[in-house]
Design a binder for these strands. Structure first.
Ligand SMILES: [Mn+2]
Ligand SMILES: [Mn+2]
Ligand SMILES: [Zn+2]
Ligand SMILES: [Zn+2]
Lengths: 147, 147
DNA sequence: AGCAATAGTGAGAATCAGTATCATTTGCGA
DNA sequence: TCGCAAATGATACTGATTCTCACTATTGCT
């Protein structure tokens, strides 16, 4: 998805949610788009100092409700946000248990298909209605392995 | 793993960590063993009112450090704990996004093998050292679907 | 353009899950 | 049995996140 298409799609989603696409929200989208994985509030504020913390919190919540971003919770005390899969495509996360950093990765379509089929079976037999799956790899990133 | 074997294994893990297997800790293990998925602190205290909240928090941390229990974070504001996979076997979670409840499920060995292989490839190409994977299904549980 | 009415902003206060403190109790070893 | 280190549990504290509210920006209308 090109930058302009992304922008158009975000605008449409916000419009559907009766929300304006303000300059704070544009800056947030831009910050998230620049990262190679979900970002913490601290990381966002560090990236764009013109964004006050309270505005970041409030607007990320609104963007999440509008389906523009997704909130990711790992094991550390900091929530992370990324653009919704609707905008970036389905993918997974490498989570470093040493430094907390999270980066994206993808699996090939065949593996995803196998997985979806197996998960669908499990959901059905538990009377569970599945919306999506979440698959993370936990371990140590290159930087932390070096140190 | 039988109840006695579980008890022995927990005792051994605590011994390795130079921790005693006290009655509070026995009650915690018992509460976790009784659940069909990871439990919140509130659920544990509700199950066994003889356990003060501060003792539950402290001992769950100690049990986690000893490798006896695992802390699970979903998307709500409450951490959940379950017996470590070392004791219960590898499995996954159905997470209800409506009520927050979490229940266990398993995939068959062939799917796990396919998955592990694909994940290993992804880890290697990212320079990431993987310890384990975490796979959750997000959706709506039977009870919430009814309501 | 002028003028409400409505939406968004941002500094600071409040909330609350989780952690730290510490006086008291427990249980292991000599 | 005694002494001591570990554990307990009531309570205070911490800090990420949420709430408040006076102020500013934008929209829609004439
Ligand atoms: Mn991602
Ligand atoms: Mn489980
Ligand atoms: Zn790392
Ligand atoms: Zn539910």
């Amino acid at each position: 998805m090109s930058l302009n298409d992304l922008d158009d799609e975000v605008a449409a989603l916000l419009d559907d949610a009766d929300q304006r696409y303000t300059s704070s929200r544009r800056r947030l989208i831009s910050a998230l788009q620049a990262g190679d994985g979900p970002l913490t509030i601290t990381q966002i504020v560090a990236t764009d100092a013109s964004l006050p913390q309270s505005t970041v919190y409030r607007n990320l919540t609104i963007l999440e409700e509008a389906g523009v971003v997704t909130r990711i919770v790992t094991s550390d005390d900091f929530a992370r946000y990324e653009l919704a899969e609707k905008l970036t495509g389905h993918h997974h996360h490498l989570i470093c248990t040493a430094c907390g950093d999270v980066v994206d990765f993808s699996l090939d379509a065949a593996v995803e298909a196998t997985l979806d089929k197996a998960l669908d079976g499990a959901a059905v037999s538990a009377g569970f209605t599945a919306d999506s799956h979440r698959l993370d790899l936990l371990g140590t990133c290159r930087d932390c392995a070096k140190a």
